[in-house]
């Protein structure tokens, strides 16, 4: 029997074939470039020797990073955002996780209504959430500020926490809990030793999501914070004049810190999987 040669194609056909096969990958690279252009811009301009207006590249400097609080008000605004973020995340994660367990692990009357009430805040535009809250606070003569803002943040974070944790609970194999009970763990021990540790990654993810939503929120905060400044408010109000490079420093650091947290989480997961 004669050997059958491996078919070789002309170069032009091979190139078009390569494109055909890799079109989707090329597209993905373009997509990611689009996603990251403003991020890289923000990071690059955190090193700009800009002075007051950070619009044009004027030379490389580390002084913005050395002195992130150099611009007036920026660190006060950041401090407020962090404070609100931490309080709102803690509260929303606890409240949302409790609801997620109720929905994910129990049958009860009013489950559909509960699901609807969880879904509605996510389906309501932020202007509506923000303006309705402010109108109520004004009606009850409560002045906008830190605590009204925290209340608002907890409210819109709860739904996202419930959805995230619920998904994790639903993906659990119920046989694991049955096995725990079979091995003499009562309900409480089963929950503490098996269920909770397994749901924990979901809760951690939900907390991370809640924090980033809270930290990044502008519209609802703008309605309910009164004269208190937050980081997004600071960026918004200084956008017209050009934001100081220190804001880019803060934005870039948040980006890097979050990446490190996510990478660490992935590493922990991988180690656990082994």
């Amino acid at each position: 029997m004669s050997t059958v040669p491996i078919p070789t194609l002309p170069v032009s056909k091979r190139i078009s074939r390569w494109f055909g096969r890799n079109l989707i990958r090329i597209y993905a690279v373009l997509g990611f470039t689009y996603l990251f252009v403003p991020v890289f811009y923000t990071i690059a301009f955190s090193f700009n020797n800009a002075g007051k207006s950070n619009l044009v590249w004027k030379g490389f400097t580390l002084s913005n990073w050395a002195n992130p609080c150099g611009a007036p008000d920026v660190c006060a605004a950041l401090g407020n955002s962090l404070k609100i973020g931490v309080i709102a995340t803690t509260a929303a994660t606890i409240l949302g996780t409790l609801i997620a367990f109720a929905i994910g692990r129990h049958r009860f009357r009013g489950r559909a209504t509960t699901n609807l009430l969880i879904f509605l805040p996510m389906a309501t535009p932020e202007v509506v959430l923000g303006s309705s809250l402010l109108a109520m606070f004004l009606a009850f003569r409560i002045n906008p500020g830190v605590w009204p803002t925290v209340a608002a943040h907890v409210m819109f974070c709860i739904s996202f926490v419930v959805v995230t944790v619920k998904a994790r609970i639903a993906s659990l194999d119920p046989r694991l809990e049955q096995a725990a009970m079979d091995l003499y763990a009562n309900e409480r021990e089963t929950f503490r030793r098996v269920t909770l540790p397994l749901v924990m990654p979901g809760i951690a993810g939900a907390a991370l999501l809640a924090f980033s939503l809270s930290f990044d929120d502008f519209i609802i905060t703008n309605f309910n914070s009164g004269t208190m400044n937050t980081f997004p408010k600071f960026v918004y109000t200084s956008a017209a004049r050009g934001i100081p490079a220190q804001a880019n420093v803060i934005g870039s650091s948040m980006f890097l810190i979050a990446l490190v947290i996510v990478a660490a989480g992935q590493l922990v997961n991988r180690k656990k999987a082994r």
């Binding site: 990611f32 991020v39 990446l259």
Partner: peptide, 19 residues
């Protein structure tokens, strides 16, 4: 890649819009 899709989120939404 999944992390990269979410990563731009971590810089402020306003900063990116201003960018």
């Amino acid at each position: 890649l999944l992390v990269l899709v979410v990563a731009p989120f971590f810089t402020s939404f306003l900063l990116r819009t201003v960018a």
